[in-house]
């Protein structure tokens, strides 16, 4: 893969999302319900993207919303759900049952090994487990190999080179340099293993300010960066905003019901521009976490 040279990487959200083609192998950044690239997810739905092949670790509304909107062909995440808080992912569950999405469930450490193979330019890497699990049977592309040094039989996995890694960061600059706070989850590995990073940031700042905060993903891996305040909502992106529990619950209710309820959710929250969305969901209230422990706890009740 080549680096992404050139000066100004700034793009509109529509231009950024248009870099993802139908059928693309897409890595979604963030994890569980934190720092998910939700504005890009919504924009891909607006643009009518189809047959995406999603890869990654543990995710939630990003994957479920793409499935609910009919944008996904293959799901190769290690987990899709809303944890003990809100439970199983409704669109994912329905699509797995009716076969409309092919579920090739993976394992975090296997995805990591495959990304590292892509980063290093080697044709495979071994993993420590998987042998003997039924996950192995979901992946005809895996193989077993006897180690030439120890004689152990190990599962080996091919490189995973996403066409695009979709990342959201609190801060970026015009050159596409990104600052993230930990946990980075797989964002760094996705950035290095993918053909291109397409990013949204809550704020574009001068390079000197970004360097002060710390560059985690360098601009030479990034093809486009769009400034979208609250671009991870309803997942969290601290220090700006916490997890929007009422919104997530509303999504779950709509996606569980399907039909008209889901159509209404999509019409109100997805098929609108991001400014309209942000006015509607009122994310400023999610900054209350920093006021006091009590205020922070209230966001989760």
């Amino acid at each position: 893969m080549s680096f992404h040279l050139g000066g100004d990487k700034r793009a509109s959200l529509a231009e950024a999302a248009a870099r993802v083609g139908d059928g693309a192998l897409v890595a979604l950044g963030g994890g569980l319900c934190a720092r998910l690239p939700m504005a890009l997810v919504r924009e891909m739905v607006r643009q009518g993207r189809r047959d995406l092949h999603l890869v990654g670790s543990a995710h939630s509304i990003d994957v479920d919303l793409l499935i609910a909107a009919g944008a996904v062909g293959v799901c190769e995440e290690s987990y899709v759900g809303f944890e003990q808080d809100l439970g199983l992912a409704p669109a994912f569950r329905r699509a797995a049952r009716d076969g409309s999405v092919e579920v090739r469930e993976s394992c975090c450490a296997t995805v990591l090994a495959q990304l590292r193979a892509a980063e290093a330019g080697v044709p495979f890497l071994p993993v420590r487990g998987i042998k003997g699990t039924d996950v192995e049977g979901l992946h005809p592309e895996y193989a077993r190999m006897t180690c030439p040094f120890t004689g152990e039989e190990l599962v080996v996995v091919p490189p995973l080179r996403p066409d695009v890694a979709l990342l959201h960061a609190p801060l970026g600059d015009a050159h596409g340099n990104l600052h993230l706070d930990q946990p980075f989850v797989l964002d760094e590995r996705f950035a290095h293993a993918s053909v291109a990073v397409v990013a949204t940031v809550d704020r574009i700042v001068p390079t000197a300010e970004l360097v002060g905060a710390g560059v985690v993903v360098p601009g030479h891996l990034v093809a486009a960066v769009a400034e979208v305040p609250y671009g991870a909502h309803p997942s969290s992106c601290y220090p700006g905003y916490a997890y929007d529990r009422p919104h997530l619950a509303a999504y779950l209710a709509a996606a569980t019901a399907g039909g008209t309820a889901l159509d209404e959710y999509l019409a109100r929250y997805v098929h609108v521009d991001e400014d309209t969305y942000a006015k509607d969901v009122d994310p400023e209230r999610l900054a209350a976490w920093s006021g006091s422990t009590r205020a922070w706890q209230e966001l989760f009740r």
């Binding site: 670790s57 543990a58 995440e77 290690s78 987990y79 899709v80 759900g81 944890e83 199983l88 992912a89 994912f92 569950r93 797995a96 049952r97 579920v103 469930e105 394992c107 975090c108 450490a109 296997t110 993993v127 420590r128 487990g129 998987i130 042998k131 699990t133 996950v135």
Partner: peptide
Amino acid sequence: KLGGGGGGGNISA
């Protein structure tokens, strides 16, 4: 369809 195994398929070994 349950959520999925996260990293358990390797590290439980």
